[in-house]
Design a protein around this nucleic acid. Structure first.
Length: 117
RNA sequence: AAGGUAAAUUGAAUAAUCGCUCUUCGCUUUUGUGAAGGGAGGAAAGUCCGGACAUCAGCCCCGCACUAACUUUGCAUCGGCCUUCGGCCUAAGCACCAUAGGUGCUAUGCAAAGUUAGUGCGGGGAUCGGUAGCGGGUAACGCCCGUCUAGGGUGACCUACGAGGUGCGAGCAGAGACGCUUUGAUGUGAAAAUAUCAAAGCACCCUUCGGGGUGAGCCCCGAUAGUAAUAUUGGGGGUGAAACGGCUAAAUCCUUACUUAGAUGCAAGGUCGUACGCCAAUGCGAAGCAGUGAAAACAGUAAAUUGGUGUUUUCAGUGCUUCGUAUUGGUGGGUACUGCAAGAGCUUAUUGGUAACAAUAAGCCCAGAUAAAUGAUUAUUUUUAACAGAAUCCGGCUUACAGAUUUACCUUGAAA
RNA sequence: UGAGAGAUCGUCUAGUGGUAGGACAGCGGACUCUGACUCUGCUCACCGGGGUUCGAAUCCCUGUCUCUCAG
């Protein structure tokens, strides 16, 4: 799990990011990001009913996404609220998706990664 | 040993690193940080039943208890002192008798009785519901247990239905099935008509119109032919028709017995705080507008003074509007805490009971999140790991489920 | 998470135990020189699985899907 200060907590904040954030995506991941006033990166994860009807599967995906994001926190530009959404086609199975690759791809597209050059 | 029946248990394990949540303790005390410990299920699911809990509402009668008000009756009366019982000192509104004092009224207190209202508990009844062989269990249920009946299975065992009627008319049986037509009676109606009840409804002949006779058909007893279905035929008396019977709910209605009590649902409900929005009232301040009063100036009246009129300025004060601010009240949304996990709890043992279950004793504390906690990585082993994620809490039912294990029993075969 | 409602021809709907009806659409025919309109005929359905019943779209149980409300 993420430390408390790095989570997007409130429902209203989520809605704001959903409405006003910049959208980028890769194959199985969609990202909305918006600047906030603090120095911290705050991340929320959404896995909707459309992803799967089983609660267990949705929880597993949420855990997986958080675990992937956590070590990358250092590499993400500070001061953004980020909402990560998972998506898949009906036939796809959760196990066959490589979320890490997808997330990094999406973050790069949104220019949220710190360049190591 | 093989096959099966019923029930129960379990639902990958171990180690290391990183990370989350709760509790306790310590250090800091604002955030934090260290240690120890706890951290999803048998179905957590579906929401199909039943409760707990909470808020709102709450039929009639009786009894008991408590509280409040009122009425009646009785007793007492500020206050102070002494060691309790109690005694002493002193004092007391109004009216009357009449002054040792007494009576009545008022006020207050206490006690008793009664009335009214409210609350709680218990009992009975009515009505809306629910259930249905019989008996039991449970907080309760449509749940569970035992047993009766029917069906299936060699068997262990499994499955199913279950009060009494009414109405309906599909199927069976039957010559014919709940109906049609005609007539009559009764009720309603001006009539038409309609509802209910009763009777009649094969063919021909006779008739005094009541009915009678003959024949077909039906019923009963036969005979002949044929393996048989059946065909032909004899006798009898009845009938000559539209009866009688079986089944029928988890839809409707009635009855009986038992049982229960409504509605809404933890996003129920409660507490704290008030930084926020809106509305209302009040106070203060500012601005604007409109009246009022006073003063001054000017105009005007033929003219001086006075008075009055009009305009302007200043001051005072009133009303209205707007803005700001403060207080109070209402309302809306938001937030924190609570509700919230010690419970119809779990484990073990004993006793009662065929059992469901109950009682007793001992021990135990076992998730409590709030965008929502159990994961990831590495290594080893095996069967390569099913269905699946708590959200107020319980008891059932139903549905999903890879496998593994245990117990009891049955059938068959073999051996003794 | 809690509370409810529903599923009937391709589409919209009616049907409260006894042949599942209508409208639009589709197909064929008639009318017309042809098309449209009109007339006429036909085709096409009870969400899946069990049960009660002589008989189920309807009643009961169960599963699936869709929608609504609270937030």
């Amino acid at each position: 799990m993420l430390p408390f200060k790095n989570r997007l907590v409130k429902r209203k904040e989520h809605e704001q990011v959903q409405k006003l954030g910049n959208f980028t995506s890769s194959k199985n991941i969609a990202i909305k990001a918006m600047k906030n006033n603090s120095q911290e990166t705050r991340i929320g994860v959404i896995v909707g009913l459309k992803y799967s009807k089983k609660a267990v599967e949705r929880n597993q995906v949420k855990r997986a996404l958080r675990d992937i994001v956590q070590p990358e926190l250092k590499n993400i530009v500070r001061g953004y609220d980020i909402v990560i959404m998972a998506r898949k086609k009906e036939e796809e199975k959760t196990r066959s998706i490589n979320f890490k690759k997808n997330i990094l791809e999406a973050l790069e597209k949104g220019q949220l990664l710190i360049n190591k050059k």
